[in-house]
Simulated scan of single mutants.
Amino acid sequence: MADLSVQFCGVRIKNPVLAASAEPTLNAGNMNKCIEAGAGGVIAKTMTDSPAMRELTTRSKWRFLDQRHEVCHGKVPRAFSLYGRSGLALETPEEFLPEIRKTLKFAADNDAVVVGSIGSTEISGWVELAKQMEDVGVPLLECNFGCPHPKMMPGVRTGMNVGQDFNYACEITQAVAEAVRIPVMIKVTPQVNDLVGFSGRLLDVGAKAVTLTNRFIGFVPDIESGKPLIWGQAGIGGPWVKPLTLRWIREVYLAYKERVAIAGTNGAYDWRDIVMFVMSGADIVEMCSAVMVYGYEWLGKQVKGLEEWMDAKGYKSLAQMKGIAAEAALPYANMPSEKARVIEDACIGCKRCLDACFYNAMQDGGEKTHVLEENCIGCGGCLSVCPQAGAIEINVV
């Protein structure tokens, strides 16, 4: 049986599936449900000393959007978007810390890990919140430099407003890392111009891990009413964003793999995605959007699916597959030459491949199509649109 455990910044986590800091970890009751479902751990909703960010959560709104970015009604497609407006933890730190204590006790009884999350508006506030989290007993601390909502609230300097100011973010990180003994991880926004360089700077000033990445800011009009969904701009993420997240995970992993731990988030829908995150370089995977759609039990199902897949493929541990896809990626100049081949016995003569070929390589042969090899560059468009499995191959030449 595969070993799903991982050492993350010196902390053992029984499996790589964690509930991300969001509504499913809003309080002790919610966090305990995540743990009971089988998650390796939870990242608590971000504790804050900002009244504005606490008040915003009392007016949280979100919608699950389909492939047309219209509100889902009943059936939520796999590649949905989570479009939402929310804030940070509802309670003051004095009120929220007892929630952490309750969760820590439940987690200890269930071999799970509780990660604290904080967000402040001043460096002194970040340090004080970090100390409070350490004192209550969490083994890891995540600083939230990625929350998109403060960007849409004038005068509130936390979340993304910190993550887009590299110098200020590094000041906070250094101050927090020097103030506590537990490992500090930084959750970053994807809306920056050099996330790899920023991650390196965070490591230089004391961070032990980065969480890649928080959500984007989006805007979706309702064409029937002429008004925006949920009243305006909102944070947007979900399974559709996975390739963008995996790109950053791969680049940060390759740049700093000897000294960085990576928590991947934003885009993981199921166990297949967890595999992709690990193969791209992530150590653990934080899940949120799918849990909000399907409930807490979704977490346990993905742990089981991951274990079964690893057993079937012969992987004994997560370490065996960590970063293997990241390492295998080739630069454009090193890609091998390929050509398409039509398997005549399987071809059904639908001619879809003719419309997808812009190099005049796919030729109409009447009932079947064939390939003019001297024109084919192996782009793969024909393979993608062919409805008949096995009718077209793309082979290295």
Rank of each mutant, 00 (worst) to 15 (best):
A2H: 08
V6H: 09
C9W: 12
E23M: 11
E23I: 05
L26V: 11
N27T: 11
N30D: 05
N30I: 03
M31T: 08
C34M: 15
E36A: 13
A39H: 00
G41V: 12
G41F: 01
A44K: 14
A44L: 14
T48K: 15
D49L: 06
M53G: 02
M53L: 11
T57A: 10
S60F: 14
L65I: 06
E70A: 14
C72D: 03
C72R: 00
G74E: 04
P77G: 02
L82N: 09
L88K: 10
L88H: 03
L90E: 04
T92S: 15
T92Q: 03
P93C: 13
P93R: 01
P98I: 15
R101T: 12
R101H: 10
R101M: 09
L104Y: 01
A108K: 11
V114M: 10
I118Y: 01
W126T: 02
L129V: 03
L129M: 05
V136R: 14
G137N: 03
H149L: 09
M153F: 02
N161W: 00
G163Y: 06
D165T: 01
Y168G: 10
C170K: 11
I172K: 13
T173G: 00
A177R: 00
A177C: 02
A177V: 01
A179Y: 02
V180H: 03
P183A: 11
K187T: 02
V188I: 15
V188Y: 08
T189N: 00
N193V: 14
D194S: 08
L195G: 12
F198L: 07
R201K: 13
V205S: 00
A207L: 14
T211K: 11
R215V: 04
I217K: 07
V220E: 13
V220R: 15
I223E: 08
L229Y: 05
G232L: 12
Q233M: 14
A234K: 06
G237T: 01
P239N: 06
T245E: 07
T245N: 06
L246G: 03
R247Y: 07
R250D: 04
A255K: 14
K257Q: 12
E258A: 05
R259K: 15
R259G: 02
A263T: 14
A268R: 01
Y269D: 05
Y269C: 12
V275D: 01
F277C: 05
V278M: 02
G281R: 02
G281K: 02
C288T: 10
C288W: 00
S289Q: 03
A290L: 03
V291K: 00
V293I: 10
K301N: 05
L306R: 07
D311E: 09
D311R: 10
A312M: 08
S317T: 15
L318Q: 06
L318P: 05
G323N: 05
G323F: 02
G323T: 04
A325T: 08
Y332W: 14
A333F: 07
S337L: 13
E338M: 12
V342Y: 11
E344S: 13
D345C: 07
C350P: 09
C353D: 10
C353H: 10
L354C: 11
D355S: 13
D355R: 15
A356P: 01
A356I: 04
A356Y: 09
C357L: 04
Y359Q: 15
N360R: 14
M362D: 04
G366Q: 12
K368T: 08
H370Y: 13
H370A: 04
E373Y: 06
I377K: 15
G380Y: 05
C382T: 06
L383G: 06
C386L: 11
P387Q: 03
